[in-house]
Design a binder for these strands. Sequence first.
DNA 1: AGACTCATGTAATTCGTTACATGATTCC
DNA 2: GGAATCATGTAACGAATTACATGAGTCT
Lengths: 245, 245
Amino acid sequence: MSLKHALLGFINYGPMTGYELKKFFDTSVAHFWNAELSQIYPALKQLEGDSLVEMKVEVQEDRPNRKVYSITEPGRRELIAWLAKPAEREQVREPILIKVFFGSSLSKQDLISVLQNCADETRTAVTYLEHAHQFVDKFVEAIGLQQEALFWQLTIDCGLKVHRAELEWSEDAIQKVKAADDSIFENEQHGYDGVNDVRSAMEALDRVKSLMPGALAGADKYLPSAQGKPDQQARVPTRTRAAAR
Amino acid sequence: MSLKHALLGFINYGPMTGYELKKFFDTSVAHFWNAELSQIYPALKQLEGDSLVEMKVEVQEDRPNRKVYSITEPGRRELIAWLAKPAEREQVREPILIKVFFGSSLSKQDLISVLQNCADETRTAVTYLEHAHQFVDKFVEAIGLQQEALFWQLTIDCGLKVHRAELEWSEDAIQKVKAADDSIFENEQHGYDGVNDVRSAMEALDRVKSLMPGALAGADKYLPSAQGKPDQQARVPTRTRAAAR
DNA sequence: AGACTCATGTAATTCGTTACATGATTCC
DNA sequence: GGAATCATGTAACGAATTACATGAGTCT
């Protein structure tokens, strides 16, 4: 679980409270990780239960008491062990791509609007990250932690490259959609009973798979969902489903 | 919720069962959406409850009965309305970037290994998507659905661009880490009580924010977590915390 | 007066994964 | 004989979001 380790990482900078952790999240790793206070507080309790952090109550008169968490030796060891392990890949989920995938059901104009909106939002993200770069420069100078700059900037570099690629794609996609023949849009969906069609599509799928042996072999490595499953052999079914028609 | 609409999208191609839907997911949108059968079956029930799809049991002797779902008119309307709406942005979560962000706690070699692993996995993903491109070409030809090719290929284009950008970044990052001074690694963390340090860092944060008015103004638009919240004014606190030391 | 800061949480709900359960048939 | 295909699910768990709750103090 990444959240707990991210918390450990921040607490390793110095003892702090849940409230402060939230602030650090929002101003430093917000572009690749978010955490709500309602998630941070229970997570801290669990870390404490596992003896990875220690808590001290700091009594305040004018304000609510603070619970200051500091890292323990086992906590530091756990953090470093986790950091050195290969990173898990999260399953990608892109609603925009679902919309594009089923784009033939939309009018050309509606699809372009959806893509335009995506491009605009991505552009905002890129602008944000460009500022973030300068922000980090000034911040590390202000607190004298120049040795952290490389690592922090690298995370921004990643976001910038990826978002610029996405922006490029969406602008490109708009051009391709504009250039496309009108006939492929607002696809009238056929009302037939479909059993034959879906089954024959499935057979075609199997046939193409067998024509491209190993073509999709990367899937089980690439997709987190298929990890560990053996490389299954694609083949044409012997009992042809056409007999059922 | 995207899953239900993705299911609607597939069922709109023609009536099919949950089991078949899973196959379509795995061979066509797996690179940007995954769904387990245990999630698909209840989702179909809900869609049926909302009258967006209809179910017919197809009795089979040699195999378990099939529940074939077909889309209804309200279902088609709901699908098209959803497709035309601007796409939600999912919160990005990148464990690899957490590791890089706290990279100063690792040895140079350990950080390079983590990045190397990331690069290798990303390369596999790129190769997979390159094959997927050809796969779609052959498949649309086999079933005579050339009019869908553009939309399907666009989703692969997006994955390719984004993953190539990520690959470029990770190779770049490896070079930068290799070139970095050894002294910035295996950062010995200070055991002091930290209250002053974290608080002064927080003050520095506020100061830099006020030096760059509007620099991080994009955050609330860019980050899904902060959407809708008003553009808050960054300012230097008047009651200086230094008094508390 | 109203909003925001500081500071803590709990509860409900959604979304998704993993594990468990069944059972005939068919492939190697 | 063992694995996989076909075909349906349920149950438990984990991660994350949203809503709710409290309450003094400070800023505009």
